[in-house]
Design a protein around this nucleic acid. Structure first.
Lengths: 256, 256
DNA sequence: GTCTGTGAATACATTCACAGCC
DNA sequence: GGCTGTGAATGTATTCACAGAC
């Protein structure tokens, strides 16, 4: 990351913290809901509750964007919607391609949340020739051979990878070579990309594993018992029938 | 205090940092791949590269679990796989339910990554009576009416919500009432849950919006950067000329 | 010599708490 | 009175750099 120089102090300071950027879409969603209900203004407290954060954090976040509120009153909903949209780059439309039209890719293609923000699915691409031409979410699936052409013709800079893990790096390389500079990766694999290309990943199984970690801890607190039994056991908890785990009878966890 | 153990606290220290927990699945995946290639040991440098992090971070992360490496040698792959699996709670199997069998729910049901870790889809649940009984991913869809019974009978503690936003809170409440204590939420809404219940959310459109933010920033920098790198880098950006935003005053994405 | 494990240093993020404006 | 905006304080995460085990 190229740190320029000292601060550009004015209302448009060039460094919004990553953590803040990651929350802006959350605020935007909450604001959009308020806007649809024609709520004219909102306090940091109310908006924070709607977005699921605390109000100090929200105010700090907004302070990076500028002073868009009014003391004693709150924030103008419409104005904030616009400012955040602009900051996120959603006032323009972003064509995206989805590569890998399996179950997940198809689900993504059908996902309404893309279009409702500035995103437009420019094409669906799959390596299976049998898929080519088949309509998914109203778009004909195109073959991988056409990938470069599609990207170039549509000026696509954001790509979504929903292929199996084995194909992801190869697809990624082609996307990058074709000019893509932002990638959302659903394949459970680490992608390597040149500098200047952003990758964000969504890994469904990782999220579950994190939940399992905390779940296990909860279970352990209830029955502070055998935790480290080298051979067999896991924390015990009531369940019904033993489901077979890797080594025999593994209890499921039920809060009683 | 509970922290009575003086030395060797790391073996099961009461607080593995969240950031570390979130990376353990990454390490585990990389290690599993090495294990399948029968690689016996791995250095922090190699493993870090495979997991897409830097080696100092990895070593620090592992130090929270204990001293599982050998100086001058590296880490035993099989042993680490076991230790991390145990730490994450993956040595037991976790029955999960998926609620909301639309495109996304079906994709999740078919997703192989769950079963390959300790997760087992115990049931698919949908509110649509027309769906009831229809097989998805080899399981018959069950109706929401049976939700409590399913959770109780299978000792499920982890639920996945893949319903439309409007139904999510209601489903969440029922899941929690039925005993679920961990929720993975795909619906684009903030869920409120009582203490003791963990929620993780995956929001597809939020990830894209974060990418758009950075993409927009790149485009802004391009004006200055383009001459520095000559013409080598960005075919798609050049092709983007044809695209125009819906409104007239779209800020210059391209040096005009 | 190699590579881990970890205090110390730094960077980043959140929360506090209150001055300043409505 | 109510609410924002923000320095200061605190908490968390990452990185450095090297002592110590092999």
């Amino acid at each position: 990351m190229a740190t320029g120089r000292t601060h550009r102090p004015a209302t448009r300071s060039r460094g919004i913290p990553e953590a803040t950027v990651a929350r802006l879409p959350l605020y935007l969603r909450a604001l959009t809901a308020l806007s649809e209900r024609s709520v004219p203004t909102v306090s940091s407290e109310e908006l924070a509750a709607a977005a699921g954060v605390n109000s100090a954090k929200l105010r700090k976040d907004f302070s990076y964007l500028g002073s868009y509120g009014t003391r004693g009153v709150g924030y103008d909903v419409e104005y904030l919607v616009y400012q955040i949209s602009r900051e996120l780059g959603l006032t323009q439309d972003w064509p995206v391609v989805i590569v890998g039209i399996g179950n997940l890719g198809a689900a993504l293609a059908n996902y309404g949340g893309f279009a409702s923000r500035g995103f437009r699915v420019a094409a669906l691409i799959d390596a299976d020739p049998a898929m080519a031409g088949k309509p998914v979410a109203g778009l004909p699936v195109r073959h991988t051979d056409e990938l470069e052409e599609i990207i170039s013709e549509n000026g696509v800079s954001i790509g979504v990878i929903a292929t199996p893990a084995g194909a992801a790096q190869q697809v990624c390389d082609r996307l990058v070579a074709a000019g893509i500079t932002s990638i959302l990766n659903f394949a459970p694999t680490v992608l390597s990309v040149p500098d200047g290309v952003d990758v964000r990943k969504v890994d469904l199984s990782i999220e579950l594993q994190i939940l399992a970690f905390h779940e296990q801890r909860k279970a352990g607190e209830e029955t502070a018992a055998v935790r480290r039994t080298g051979t067999a056991g896991r924390p015990a908890a009531a369940a019904r029938e033993g489901r077979k785990g890797p080594d025999g009878d593994v209890p499921a966890v039920m809060p009683a």
